[in-house]
């Protein structure tokens, strides 16, 4: 089975996600973009699993979904904690630590 198009799509998703992490300012949107990057990896894994004929890639993708959910939970928790402290939810404003 030819998986070229799946790989092209996953590369596009990965690029969109990485670009979003770099340019967007809201932490919420950045979390969405991180999800997009992980899902690009999932798509590639499933495509490769089809082409190589073993299911290990599909298992990997399922596991990654769980991990991605954990990351988002932590991210949202931190964002809520910042919101409660009335901190600006804008990564460009986070200059308390210079760098």
């Amino acid at each position: 089975m030819d998986i070229t198009w799946y790989l092209v799509l996953s590369a596009l998703l990965f690029a969109v996600g990485a670009g979003g992490v770099l340019v967007r300012r809201s932490p919420l949107v950045i979390l969405l973009c991180l999800e997009l990057m992980l899902n690009a990896g999932n798509l590639a894994l499933v495509a490769f699993a089809r082409s190589s004929g073993n299911e290990e890639g599909q298992v990997f993708a399922l596991v990654v979904m769980v991990v991605a959910a954990c990351e988002v939970v932590i991210g949202l928790g931190l964002i809520v904690a910042m919101f409660r402290r009335r901190l600006a939810l804008d990564v460009d404003e986070m200059r308390e630590l210079r760098g």
């Binding site: 990965f14 990057m37 992980l38 690009a40 490769f48 890639g57 990351e71």
Partner: peptide, 14 residues
Amino acid sequence: GSATLLYGLAFVYG
């Protein structure tokens, strides 16, 4: 970093 690593691991698997 994790997402980049995952994408790399997917290609190594591929």
